[in-house]
Every structure is written in C-alpha cells, then in structure tokens.
Design a protein around this nucleic acid. Sequence first.
DNA 1: GAGAAGATTCCCGTTCATCGGGAACCTCGG
DNA 2: CCGAGGTTCCCGATGAACGGGAATCTTCTC
Lengths: 250, 250
Amino acid sequence: MANSPTGDSATDRLVRILDTFTPTRTVQTATEIGRRSGLPSSTAHRIVTELVEAGLLERDEDRRVRIGMRLWELATRSSHALRLRQAAMPFMERVQSRVREHTQLAILEQDEALFLERLSSPDSGANITRVAGRLPLHASSSGLVLLAFGDVDLQERVLSSPLAPLTRATLSDPAAVRRKLAEVRAIGHAIAPGYIEEVSTGIAVPVRDETSRVVAALSVVLPRDAETDFAVVELHRAAQDIARSLGFRH
Amino acid sequence: MANSPTGDSATDRLVRILDTFTPTRTVQTATEIGRRSGLPSSTAHRIVTELVEAGLLERDEDRRVRIGMRLWELATRSSHALRLRQAAMPFMERVQSRVREHTQLAILEQDEALFLERLSSPDSGANITRVAGRLPLHASSSGLVLLAFGDVDLQERVLSSPLAPLTRATLSDPAAVRRKLAEVRAIGHAIAPGYIEEVSTGIAVPVRDETSRVVAALSVVLPRDAETDFAVVELHRAAQDIARSLGFRH
DNA sequence: GAGAAGATTCCCGTTCATCGGGAACCTCGG
DNA sequence: CCGAGGTTCCCGATGAACGGGAATCTTCTC
C-alpha cells in the first residue's frame, strides 16, 4: 500500500533523504528521516547506514544523524559558486565593514534566490538560524535584481505562479512586480522595504561577470527607516570590483 | 566482466561518481566520469542524467557536467561546520587584515586536515587552485595542532602509517613527529617552516569550543623568513574570541 | 523504577528495477 | 569528408534492493 506516487530511482530516494534536512532541522534520527521522506523505517535505516559509511552523512554519539562534512568538501568542487564566492568575499567584507547589518551574495537557482554567503556583525548572532538559505524571487531585493536582469522566460514563469506575500508590504500582484522590475532596470538596483520582514529593508545590486552578464546579486539588509543612498553606492562599487576581479581569472 | 573489485551499492557508485570531481577537475564529460569511476559508459550516462535531474550535478551548455549548486546548499545544512565557520569568520577577517597572506580554518576529517575556509589577499589570486582542500596531519601546521590535541588512537593510527614528505623539510619520521607534537602541546601552537612548500611557513593554534575541547585549528601562512611572534599572538587572540563566540549559541 | 513510546537491528522471500553490451547517431576538429 | 569520441536508445537476464515483521535496545515520563 503505502503510496509512492512518483516513480523512485535510487537517486530520487537519495535526494528525498537529503532534503529532509533543512536549515533549521540539521540533526534527526534515522526513523524521522524515514517518516519525512516517506520511506519505510527499515529501508531508511539501511540507506542512512550506507550514506554514513560513504561519509555523506555522519552519526552523532547519540546515534542521531547529520549532514557530513564530506558534502561540504564536494560542494567546494562546484566551480561556479566557488569562483564567484572567492572573488566576491574581499569586497563583501568591505561593504560589511562600512554598512554593517548583513551583507549577502545570491545567485539564481531553480527559480529562487540562493544565498551563497552571508556576513553578519558578530553581535547580531541571534538571527543566524532565522535567515533561510533561499528566498523567493519576487519578495527579496536580491531576487528582484536577479529577476529583473534574468531572461523573459524566467519572468513569465515566476509572474504566472502564485506570489506568496511574506509580510503586508511584499508585492504579491504580478502587475506590481512587473512595475518594480522596470524600476529596478531603470535605476540599476532594488530596494525592498519590509518585503521580507516588516522591520528591515533589503537593498540589492546586480553583479556582472567578465562578459557583463548578470550572474549574482549583492545585497545588504538595513533597518527599515535607515538611509539607503550610502549603501547603494557601496554596493555598486563592490559589484564593479567583483566584476573586475572575475575578469582576472582564466 | 569488467571488474568491480569492491562490492558496490547504489550509494557506493554515487560516491565514486562524485569523487571523480577534484579541486582542479571541476568539469568533465559523462564518459570521462564513467572511465574515472570504473563504470561502463552507458551506466555512467544514465546515472549522471538522474543526478542532473535531481540537481546534484549540472550540465553546461556544451553537455559537460559539473557539481550542482544544490550540493552547496545541502552542505550548508551541515550544522557543525557551518556553526564553527560562522563563528570564526569575523575573527578570521581580523587576523587576515593584520597578518596578511592566507588565513585558514581547518577541522579533523577522516584522519586529515580539512580546510573549511581560507581567506586570501585579493592580489594573491594566482594560487587559489593550487591550495588543496585537504592536507595530511603530519605535514601542515593545522594538522599538527589537530593531531597534538587529538586523541591517542588517532595519533597512533597516523604515526604508524607512511608519513609522506611534501618537501625536504617535512617531518617524515614518526619519532620526529612525536617530538614535534610534544612541543606543540607545550608551547600551545605549531610552526611548520617549509613543510608544505619550501618558501612558506605555516603557523597554527587550536580553537576550542565552549567545553574547551579542541575542535579546529586556525592558521596563517607567511613567507618562510617572516617574523612569527606577531602572528602567534593574533591567532591566539582570535581563537579565544571564537571560543567565546561559540559559547553564545544555544 | 516500572512502563510506554520510539528507535534500531536483524531476517528473509519476492520482485522488479538496475545493469551493461551493443549499435546507431550526433558532433566536432582536422 | 572522414574519424574519434561522446551520447542516446534498446532490451533481456540477473541479482540486489525492498520492506513487512519481530526482537532488542534506548530514551522519556510519571
């Protein structure tokens, strides 16, 4: 009985298992993994054991399971992300040291904004977990930049799907988003006051590679009522420096 | 026929495939992957396709394959590494801004030193690729620290296996390494002049968590003839700040 | 400390997805 | 225009994965 509506290959199942880990849920028991991934307990246990042997997962002393460091290492082989991150880091630090709050680097991934790096002031340690690794394109300043400079197919796809609002301020009407995108293209950056959380404003600029294609968005988060001009200038400067730095490699 | 000397489960094969990617070899054709992983071409193609659909791998426009950003994201769920890295980053930046060259954070992983983060001056972009993600414990300053403060089993295991020298200066005699470890424990840091490359010296200190167990090594790389005292002081200060910062969480 | 709820391990017969040889096809570069 | 290497498609045999179930161990709860 069970269900298995979607056909599952070995790879599918693996991904289902890995996907039971979320930014907040980083350790769980093998049985939990089974439940969450829709796998019978015995099967889940077997596969988890294999994955642990392979190093993709790790077991705590108390038998609970978490994602293995091996995966981190493998991710490191991902040329694109790594190269971009490496190039951006020094300049992100400069932004962070001048603007404070959070500085973030995001790329387009599966129709969402995926954050590769996020610098925070040491004092604001509280909300590290709260901030997710992904945000919808229409709601975050980074997402709006990626969307505005992305191709038309992407825009249609995103605008024709439900635009869930995260706060009262989030743009959830396709027409409104369309206007916003035009504005972003016109002024060259996106300002998202209160879209993600009421109390803060996101500011993002496009980052271009050596061929001047937009490959990422660089953003900062400020208190809702803060002055934004200085941040915009700093972000643009950093984005240009990153582009120049990318030009050097290869 | 073929061979399959080691028994292979679905997971094994997956890992074999992922392992064909190295820090230098980040893109390859499906057939190449098959060759390197010892899998028949048709099989390799099938699995690679599945992995691409799952997002663990990605295809370039020209059909070639690289590691997918999805993996990066999953790695991000790895609580330990992430937490440590997040806590360490601000202080690593401080070290980097004062000492220059490279600043690195390494942990113990499968009897080797695995580098989680590595800050470099923007100008020294050349050698990013050259620096591997892992180094042997007996040869790197970070490794010596991790080994010196690691448990006895680990030390025996490492010292009884062949100690490959990377340069003429690398300690490759078990007795010499043992003496060095005693020294590290005595003075509280490791200095490795020319062990990795003739021209540079690594300096590492232990990083402790809130329970004061050694969980990582923080290190810098300096020119071989540089003065080390200042770096040692800065490193110790950063390590303490990191420990304090780790104490805040949870 | 007793009892319950949950997690883990082991066993085993069935089945069905995986495997991989082979051949045709595509795509370069020379 | 040719050839080498990469990719896709096909298909029958095989054996490895599957998962129900029960016994055991661990962790809470009261």
